[in-house]
Design a protein around this nucleic acid. Structure first.
Length: 770
DNA sequence: TAGAATGAAAT
DNA sequence: ATTTCATTCTA
């Protein structure tokens, strides 16, 4: 897709030869990383930012790829995006079938119900990140400014979207052409002249780089680390942020800290990693631009910096877009702006470097880490331009398979479970569920971006085997376990990380495992140290268990219910779901609940624009948290109501997420009913289940798409006990059940037959009615 | 490649 | 007030 697969390397293919160097640029990270072990956590975030910028050193090298530098850094993620990134995997795990969009909706709901405090964490991080980013890129504009004229969105889109982290695409092709000018201002100095590509790869380059680093190293280490941290503390800003401001040229030295390992070097060469970084060093000449002052000539140190910066600028993802843009319009405004400041680039570079130095990356990881890091990227890029493409394909395949299997099962299971739950129990054991989920999730957490790096799988493996990737491995492990970090913020999360982690391992379905692994592999390799850091930090963000949200969501639901009644919601059913059996049950249940839904739906519709109350009506007894929200309101009593149990159910669906105001386009879909209520156009809302099922659907899903699913999953907990086979592994369930109660255990183990289910249905329904 | 969500910034 | 675009990834 966008970025990932296809995107990843589109460029690469093209010109391989030229490009490789570019990639290498990216690689430099590893070197940097080596630098200092210590660092404050805070800084990490910022590092990321830097990375983004870096993106394109490669360009410089080769062709002058300014283009890369030009590409603008991507805007920093906002709190919500961070949250999404962190939790998407969880959602997906729960609802394999659900597509991203659906997942996004769920995430939005979660976000809506997220405790302010928790939310604040994300917000803070986002802010921090943003601040650092801005420091690094002083003139950065969210919007390119005037570019528009030319480029049609489509064009830009293609390329553009790569992620920062993604490998630097190679700029080569057009970039050379385009790039140049855009820079408008910037260019003056920036010329990073670059080393010839030929040279790039050589060990010599590496060595040189190392030397440079050596010189500065000391300074950077001492000053940056301690000083920065302290400062940061005082100011409250992250150390990185501070660094950004200061940025001594010396910092570059950092690279040198660690002596390269000959063997390593060799390997690097092999993979082409070295190339990345080296060329720049020699180039130094132009760097002057770095200092805003524009002192042209630069001392060696400066040069280095400048060189680096370009690299940073890389932007893998961006490249594409930008390149296109540039190609189309060399002068495109956007680029110009971004590029606007060479200075900024330099800064960013510096910033990055510093960060790296501080970085905790393995404290002493030694060259190996570097190597692996860099290697991963570079290797992928260079060596495998073709490979990359391949990856994309494979992925899809895998995913599809997984989906099919999992999705179907899961959905079914979920639905059933949900139903059951509703009736049965209110309480179930959430923990189990959580654990399961978590397990699933964790993997993702660890490797967040697979797609991009997926290509490197083989390389990665190799490295690991060689022991080069130690640090990565550690990270990975960390991630898996992950949760540990998450636990940091226990306060937030309701769930225990630990439990999740463990459970995952045990429980996770094969499918999940596969995914996780793949992700890890992919991800890991690709990540640069910076990325790693970023991830660390990112990982430190609290991750919440679905349960938590479920509860909350439930509460929300209730509220909605209260609200009046109304039309139907549309919901789309889940993707395809459907086993007939389920439907049947559903149908029944749905009918019963229907009234409820209407209510909810009404609310939903009315709210279409938004309102989301957060009231915790129902809150589960156990959860304290839920109650917090507060609110008031429940406006009308709720009919259905049952206290706890029901609400949870699917019914809740109402969910409403807050979508922002509906877009106009969407709005069009809504039709006003006689009542005055709005109802979505059939086409849109109901699309999925044409049949009679509409109700069912409604019940299940609040919104279109399976939004419900997630909740159902939540509910599922109960379900699990009830029997949702597909989702959780039976074995896992059995264990859990055993621990808790024999009874439940039995249920879990045995999957209810259709008949059984039916039997149960009435019961549930009755409850619901209540 | 569009699109789902939220949010920050720009227009 | 509306548009861009950041992330993720499927259809």
């Amino acid at each position: 897709m966008k970025g990932g697969g296809g995107g990843k390397e589109p460029p690469e293919e093209g010109e391989v030869s030229g490009k490789r160097p570019k990639r290498k640029c990216l690689q430099w990270h590893p070197l940097l990383a080596k630098k200092a072990p210590d660092f404050s956590e805070e800084e990490e975030e910022e590092d990321e930012e830097e990375l983004e910028k870096e993106g394109e050193c490669a360009g410089m090298e080769d062709d002058s790829e300014e283009y890369s530098s030009e590409q603008r850094a991507r805007r920093p993620m906002n709190a919500f995006l961070l949250f999404c990134k962190r939790h998407r995997s969880l959602v997906r795990q729960e609802h394999p079938r659900l597509d991203n969009r659906g997942a996004t909706k769920i995430l939005a709901d979660w976000w809506a119900v997220l405790d302010p405090k928790e939310k604040q964490k994300y917000t803070d991080m986002a802010k921090e990140y943003k601040d650092a980013f801005m420091k690094a890129n002083p003139g950065y504009k969210w919007c390119p400014a005037t570019n528009k004229p030319v480029k049609s969105p489509s064009h830009s889109v293609n390329n553009a979207r790569k992620k920062v982290w993604s490998l630097p695409s190679n700029p080569s092709k057009e970039s050379s052409v385009a790039k140049k000018q855009p820079k408008t201002d910037s260019t003056p100095q920036l010329n990073f002249a670059m080393a010839d590509p030929n040279k790039m790869g050589g060990l010599s380059m590496l060595l040189l780089a190392g030397e440079h680093a050596l010189t500065a190293r000391e300074i950077s280490s001492s000053s940056s680390q301690t000083g920065c941290t302290d400062v940061a503390k005082h100011t409250g800003k992250s150390a990185l942020f501070q660094l950004a401001e200061v940025r001594p040229p010396e910092d570059l030295s950092i690279f040198n800290n660690k002596p390269l390992n000959p063997s390593l070097a060799v390997r690097c060469l092999r993979y082409g990693w070295l190339a990345v970084y080296t060329p720049e060093l020699p180039v130094t000449t132009s760097s002057s631009s770095s200092s805003n002052t524009g002192s042209t000539s630069s001392s060696p140190t400066d040069t280095t910096l400048s060189d680096l910066s370009p690299c940073k600028t890389l932007k893998k993802k961006k490249k594409k877009k930008e390149n296109k843009d540039s190609d189309e319009n060399p002068t495109s405004p956007k680029k110009a702006k971004k590029r606007h400041s060479p200075e900024s680039d330099l800064d960013s570079v510096m910033f990055t470097i510093e960060a790296v130095a501080k970085g905790a990356w393995g404290s002493e990881e030694t060259p190996k880490k570097k190597a692996h890091l860099s290697g991963s990227e570079s290797s992928s890029t260079t060596d495998q331009s073709p490979a990359v493409k391949k990856k994309t394909k494979p992925k899809p395949k895998k995913q599809l398979k997984l989906k099919d299997d999992d999705a179907e099962e899961e959905e079914e299971g979920d639905e059933e479970t949900n139903k059951l739950e509703d009736k049965d129990t209110d309480t179930k054991q959430p923990q189990t569920r959580q654990e399961d989920r978590e397990q699933e999730v964790k993997p993702e957490t660890c490797g967040s971006r697979k797609s991009e790096r997926s290509c490197k799988g083989a390389l990665y493996k190799t490295l690991v085997s060689e022991g080069m990737l130690t640090s990565l491995r550690a990270n990975v492990d960390r991630g898996k376990r992950g949760s540990i970090r998450g636990s940091l913020s226990d306060h937030e999360g309701s769930w225990n990380d630990e439990s999740w982690g463990f459970s995952q391992a045990a429980t996770s379905n094969p499918k999940k495992l596969k995914k996780s692994k793949s992700k890890e592999e992919t991800t890991t390799p690709g990540l640069g140290k910076l990325e790693e850091e970023f991830e660390k930090k990112f990982n430190s963000l609290p991750q919440y268990s679905p349960l938590t949200f479920d509860k909350k969501s439930v509460a929300v639901t209730k509220k909605k219910k209260n609200s009046t009644s109304s039309p139907p919601e549309p919901p789309k059913p889940c993707k395809g779901s459907s086993s007939s059996q389920k439907k049947t049950l559903f149908h029944k249940i749905v009918n019963k609940y229907k009234h409820r839904k209407e209510k909810s739906s009404v609310a939903f519709l009315s709210d279409f624009n938004m309102t989301y109350f957060s009231v915790p009506l129902d809150v589960v007894p156990t959860d304290p948290t839920v109650g917090t929200e507060s609110s008031p309101v429940v406006k009308s009593g709720s009919p259905c109501v049952s206290p706890s149990p029901e609400p949870q159910k699917v019914l809740d669906t109402p969910v409403g997420s807050q979508k922002r105001k509906a877009r106009k386009s969407k709005i069009t879909h809504l039709v006003r009913t006689a009542d005055g209520r709005l109802s979505p156009a059939e086409g849109e809302l109901k699309p999925q289940f044409p049949d009679e099922k509409p109700f069912t659907q409604e019940t299940l899903c609040n919104r279109g798409v399976c939004y419900n699913d997630p909740r159902s999953a939540e509910v599922d907990v109960t379900d699990a006990s009830g029997g949702l086979p597909a989702f959780f592994s039976l074995a896992a369930l059995a264990e859990v059940a055993a621990m808790e109660n024999v009874h439940r255990a039995q249920r879990a183990v045995s999957i209810p037959s259709e008949g059984q289910v039916k039997d149960m249905a009435p019961v549930l329904i009755s409850c619901a009615d209540q």
